[in-house]
Design a binder for these strands. Sequence first.
DNA 1: ATGCCTTCCTTCGGAAGA
Length: 288
Amino acid sequence: MRISTWNINSIRSRLPRVLDFLCRSNVDVLAMQEIKCRVSQFPVEAFLASGYQVFVNGLNQWNGVAIAVRADLDAQVLGTEFSGKIPQPPFGKPPVVEPRALGVRVAGIECWSLYVPNGREIDNPHFAYKLAWLEALRSHAHTLLAANPTALGLFMGDFNIAPCDEDVWDIQEFVGATHVSVPEREAFARLLQSDTLAQAVSLDETAISRIGTDSTNCGGLVEVTRQFAPGWTYWDYQKARWRRNQGMKIDFALATPNLADKITGAFIGREERDGEKPSDHVPVVLEL
DNA sequence: ATGCCTTCCTTCGGAAGA
């Protein structure tokens, strides 16, 4: 079975590329982020014609997530809300929960497509929102595993965090920036099983032991792409980042331990950053 | 050279992305 995650940066701009990728790569489940459209604007018929059922969470031109599942697979929507309450952004009237999460149960696996808030700048209210959003995700994962330690759960998407210094082309360029800060890396680490932290994030021993001892309240997940698929998943459109190969590794798949044991490989579809109208992210594909 | 790009909208300028 093949499961993929991809921040496509607008389904209406990327439809031919996404359908081509689905068929060519023999993908069974695709978690998409940044569809940038309302549910009514999503090209459902085109997916059906290509042999995929598709589930959509989209409100307007911002954010939005979807999951395509091969038509012959059994799939049920879980929802757009975590058991850990998803926070509202620090703006907007009336207040609304942004479409950044969608869960579908596929073949016994609880699959989530996630678009973690960007954070903007460290001192921006959006940054606190990002941390609160990640805490809601941690709470959900913790609750899932507390209820059933053998649960099969997969939390895929654009995490907007570079967990390790090597996950950006030059860490010196990111001094004082979001995506690499200690609070973000700690929030990412708290999603994980405590004994997988040391190799999963660039944090000092004090921070790792502090988070690691908090095992009664950790997410309990395992990041399952890095060991099979090293390298970056995003290159900014600006400043010729792709041509100069200056990228970031910010797209991941976090699995519950029982599902992590079933992962046999992963790869990054780098070729999707080339050619006509690419997204700035490329797909990450898991093999089970 | 801020190596200035891509997407969206009650659209031709601004917001957001990371």
